[in-house]
Design a protein around this nucleic acid. Structure first.
Lengths: 135, 135
DNA sequence: TTGATCTGTAATTTTATTTATTACAAATGA
DNA sequence: TCATTTGTAATAAATAAAATTACAGATCAA
């Protein structure tokens, strides 16, 4: 997990505050202070996950796909995550070692459990609650 | 968070199985299939956190610092983690934007909460329980 | 007390990942 | 028709992670 979750939450917060008015990727990128093409890539991903809608062409832009009260932070996390939260060693351990041979299987199980508890936490929080904290 | 947690758990599992016998960084590295100097660096870190002991010189090596039943996976996680689990965008958001101005503060709060729930999960698991899963 | 072995640690290089940049086709609206 | 904006790919630059190399210092055994 990298800065993508932060960026996604930032995007979703902006769209919530826009209340249905379309925002351009350029405007969003300038709030985040990140590259517009990169932001569009994340916007595409969020759209593919049903969290936002987009409209092409002049006067196009982005808006929430459903009410902020119906979006849970776990939905955003699921859209953005790519690999196990605790990271994965990329060396395959030594299969001649009893520990090396079995470690990945047990780590996988552990990581799944941990990730489940993280998701449970994020399920309890809606985007509306999060954005409601802003002045 | 990267592969360091995986490596640390792997190390601690090997030391548990060694039952007090000193293991060399070379042997540990070969089980993990990683570089020995890198492994020593993590071993130093684990020692600085009181989880293992080391002995220098010929016939030196590493062993658990306390009983595996007294070590919680959260202890290992705390020793290894460096930054927020969900990552942090490194661009500072635009302070001229109401959302950009406040987002990091609210993300920080959220990340702390999420990390707390993750830690709570890891507190419930001892190293002894984890290593007990191995054949 | 000498030599082999192993830890501790720093400096450097290599590799991988992330982010930014550039470019342009396609859609849309004025 | 032209300006604007999304969608997406290809490439480059920057950053982070891991490996490599090197060597001082500790320890043990012959």
């Amino acid at each position: 997990m990298n800065g993508r979750f932060s960026i996604a939450i930032h995007i979703m917060t902006l769209l919530t505050k826009a209340e249905g008015e379309l925002l351009s990727s350029e405007l969003i990128a300038s709030s985040i202070n990140a590259n517009a093409a990169l932001v569009r890539k994340e916007l595409s991903n969020l759209r593919n996950n049903g969290l936002i809608i987009s409209k092409e062409g002049a006067a196009g832009g982005y808006a929430l796909g459903k009410d902020a009260a119906q979006i849970r932070l776990s939905d955003i996390y699921q859209a953005v995550k790519r690999q196990s939260i605790l990271g994965q060693a990329k060396n395959l351990p030594n299969p001649a070692c009893p520990v090396g041979r079995q470690i990945n299987q047990h780590l996988d199980t552990l990581y799944k459990e941990v990730e489940d508890s993280l998701t449970e936490k994020l399920v309890t929080k809606t985007l509306a609650e999060f954005t409601g904290q802003f002045d």
